[in-house]
Amino acid sequence: MGNNKSVFTEEELQDYEELTYLTRKEIILAWKRWEDLVGRSGAVNKSARFPEDIIQEMPELKYNPFRTRITYVFSSARDGLIGFDDFLDLLSVMSDKAPLQLKAFYAFHIFDYNGDHMLDDEDLEYVIDSLTGQEKLLPEEKKQLVDKLLKEVDLDGGGISQEEFKHLLTKCPDFIHSFRFSV
């Protein structure tokens, strides 16, 4: 492990610790995972960016129906590429130490497929399709489910806002435990 530690300067490690919910040890372990994912030869350059599909091969994401959206949201340039800093952000948000508010912020953006800062019927249909996979609902079943979700959560009739979404998640104690994985 001393070998991996030399990749970072003391200042870089301190910065990463201050900017994430990760410990120094987790940051070094994250680098090892990064190297394993992108290949040791290309990973020495910490600013290099790699295709999102490489990151989607992580065991924690590989079978997640939202893996494409997750890597898209954590790609700082939204260009189909992920850098080490993006990877650290992902691991930080998914850590046990990240607060509910931060997890809710990212979950909201993962579900906001059309990027209009509201979860509307279009977004909810994508979420339902992602969750049901091969077992697609009939259009009328999907509409009924979307309408019920909007009726229950959308307080002002304009779509589910970030605040309404956060409020919903405070009533879902399992969310914070399921929206996570370890370094």
Rank of each mutant, 00 (worst) to 15 (best):
Ala98Val: 02
Leu81Asp: 09
Ser95Leu: 01
Asp89Cys: 13
Glu140Arg: 12
Glu140Asp: 12
Arg78Cys: 07
Asp116Glu: 11
Gln134Trp: 08
His109Thr: 00
Ala107Gly: 09
Asn114Phe: 07
Ala104Gln: 08
Gly115Ile: 04
Asp121Phe: 00
Lys97Asn: 11
Asp89Met: 13
Gln134Asn: 13
Met94His: 07
Thr132Ser: 06
Leu100Cys: 01
Ile82His: 02
Tyr126Pro: 07
Val93His: 02
Asp96Ile: 11
Glu125Met: 00
Leu131Ala: 01
Gly80Val: 10
Tyr113Ile: 07
Asp96Ala: 14
Lys136Ser: 13
Lys97Phe: 10
Asp123Ser: 05
Tyr126Val: 14
Ser92Lys: 01
Phe108Asp: 01
Glu140Asn: 09
Leu88His: 05
Leu119Asp: 06
Phe108Glu: 02
Lys103Pro: 12
Asp85His: 11
Leu102Trp: 03
Phe108Lys: 01
Asp120Ile: 00
Met94Cys: 08
Gly115Tyr: 03
Ser95Thr: 02
Gln101Asn: 13
Ala98Tyr: 08
Leu138Cys: 07
Asp112His: 08
Phe108Ser: 00
Asp112Lys: 01
Asp123Gln: 02
Ile82Lys: 02
Ser130Asn: 15
Gly80Thr: 11
Leu131Tyr: 00
Leu100Asp: 02
Ile128Arg: 07
Ser130Trp: 10
Met94Leu: 13
Tyr106Arg: 08
Leu137Gly: 07
His117Ile: 04
Asp116Met: 07
His117Trp: 06
Leu137Glu: 06
Arg78Met: 14
Glu135Gly: 02
Ala104Met: 03
Ile82Val: 15
Pro139His: 03
Gly83Asn: 04
Asp89Glu: 15
Leu137Lys: 09
Gln101Tyr: 03
Asp86Glu: 14
Leu137Pro: 03
Gly133Pro: 12
Gly80Trp: 12
Leu138Lys: 15
Gly80Arg: 09
Asp129Gln: 14
Leu100Asn: 00
Glu125Gln: 14
Leu90Phe: 11
Ile128Pro: 10
Phe111Ala: 11
Lys136Cys: 00
Thr132Cys: 11
Asp120Cys: 12
Ile128Phe: 06
Lys136Thr: 08
Phe87Leu: 03
Ser95Ile: 11
Glu125Lys: 11
Asn114His: 07
His117Gln: 14
Ala107Trp: 05
Gly83Ala: 05
Val93Ile: 15
His109Trp: 11
Phe111Asn: 06
Met118Cys: 04
Val93Trp: 01
Leu88Pro: 01
Leu90Val: 00
Gly115Glu: 10
Lys136Tyr: 07
Gln134Arg: 13
Met118His: 05
Leu102Glu: 15
Lys136Leu: 03
Phe84Glu: 12
Ala107Tyr: 04
Gly133Asn: 05
Lys103Ile: 07
Gly83Leu: 04
Asn114Val: 06
Asp120Asn: 15
Asp79Asn: 15
Asp123Arg: 03
Leu131Met: 15
Ala98Thr: 01
Met118Asn: 07
Lys97Tyr: 00
Val93Gly: 08
Ala77Trp: 09
Met94Pro: 02
Leu138Val: 00
Ser130Gly: 14
Gln134Asp: 04
Leu102Ile: 14
Lys97His: 07
